[in-house]
Amino acid sequence: MHEILVLYYSHRGSVRALAEHIAAGIHQVPGAVARVRTVPRVSAVCEAVEDDIPASGPPYVEVADLEECVGLALGSPTRFGNMAAPMKYFLDGLAGAWLNGALEGKPGCVFTSSSSLHGGQESTLLSMMLPLFHHGMLVLGLPFSEPALGETRSGGTPYGASHVSGSEGDSAPSAEEIALAQAQGRRLAEVAMRLAGSR
């Protein structure tokens, strides 16, 4: 089995829901399995402020997760058109993985959630791609051959899966958002499996 890392930060659960649907899409590809991980919250001075083991949900990510995966799906809520501080803090600490080429040549994709329809989803997704390029990853989007991309009236972009959670952050992903998240997981797994087989 080849493991694909689904790494996310979620504040109110919307990004976590997308991560679960992306993982479901990964599991649809024979030989692929999702390894779901998260990052801890940070304080105003940018240091981790939670226990080493989360009270619930997936474990916190470790550098070994990056080294052992054959692909990466990276998710964060939108914060003024950019990724949230906890994810940025984690990525900023990956100089060693960058120097060692831990992610080089592996496929990656990004996903996000915002409370409003025009809340900066696409700029967040684009900004999340930049570190992946610096790590030498092969960044994947969502093609318009996915029918839900043309049908969605909420989240979903060619840059990656997304969700509009509403002002209270409590709305569940729409059918189209779920379909696109699963399609993104499937696509990532298919590409990762092809690349892993050629190494």
Rank of each mutant, 00 (worst) to 15 (best):
E3A: 14
E3M: 06
L7K: 05
V15W: 02
L18P: 11
L18Q: 13
A19S: 08
A19T: 01
A19I: 03
E20S: 12
E20W: 00
H21D: 11
I22C: 08
A23D: 10
A23W: 01
A24R: 01
G25T: 06
I26W: 02
Q28C: 04
P30E: 14
G31W: 01
A32N: 02
V33E: 15
V36W: 06
R37S: 07
R37F: 11
P40T: 00
R41Q: 14
R41N: 14
A44K: 03
A44M: 11
V45H: 06
V45K: 05
C46W: 13
E47D: 10
V49K: 04
E50F: 04
P54Y: 01
A55F: 04
P58W: 02
V61G: 00
E62V: 04
V63A: 13
A64E: 13
L66A: 01
V70N: 02
A73H: 03
L74F: 03
S76E: 06
R79S: 07
M83F: 03
M83W: 03
A84G: 10
K88Q: 11
A97D: 00
L99C: 04
G101V: 03
G101F: 01
K106L: 12
P107V: 13
P107E: 14
G108S: 11
V110R: 06
F111V: 02
T112L: 11
S115L: 10
H118E: 15
G119T: 04
G119H: 04
Q121L: 12
Q121V: 13
E122I: 08
S123T: 15
S123F: 00
L125E: 14
L126T: 13
P131I: 07
F133G: 09
F133S: 11
H134C: 09
G136E: 13
L138K: 07
G141M: 08
L142I: 15
E146C: 12
A148R: 02
L149Y: 06
E151D: 14
E151P: 03
G155E: 08
T157E: 12
T157A: 10
P158Q: 04
Y159G: 05
V164R: 11
S165W: 00
S165P: 04
G166F: 07
G169K: 02
G169W: 05
G169M: 09
D170N: 15
S174D: 12
S174R: 07
E177N: 11
L180Q: 11
R186M: 14
R186C: 13
A189K: 01
A189L: 06
E190S: 13
V191Y: 08
A196H: 11
G197W: 00
G197M: 01
S198F: 09
